[in-house]
């Protein structure tokens, strides 16, 4: 967690305005991918201590899905970017 999240669209906001979804590094597999790939995508989650990229939605603000890169131990937030930018970056 963090107390304040700098939304790239709205500025610094209290955490209450956001909802967390989880791991932002997951890429939705192709429908033809194996059972194992899909199982990993849907069910298997790492729970790392340290740097982690997560999807957070700014529910009470711009309603954009954001990628919040933060430290799960120190709670430091390193960066917050728009989720669609990230989606384009990973090549879709």
């Amino acid at each position: 967690m963090a107390s304040l999240i700098p939304c790239p669209h709205c500025g610094v906001r209290p955490k209450e305005e956001f909802a967390i979804r989880g791991d932002a590094s997951l890429v939705r597999p192709d429908p033809e991918s194996s059972d194992e790939t899909w199982n990993d995508y849907v069910h298997i989650r790492a729970n790392p201590r340290g740097r982690y990229r997560e999807h957070w939605q700014h529910v009470a603000g711009c309603r954009r899905w954001l990628v919040v890169e933060r430290d799960t131990f120190t709670h430091e937030v390193f960066s917050v970017t728009d989720g669609s930018v990230r989606a384009w970056e990973i090549g879709r």
């Binding site: 939705r28 939605q57 954009r64 899905w65 728009d82 989606a87 879709r92």
Partner: peptide, 8 residues
């Protein structure tokens, strides 16, 4: 919103 912004 997730589907539109992040998936597609």
């Amino acid at each position: 919103e997730y589907c539109a912004q992040v998936l597609w």
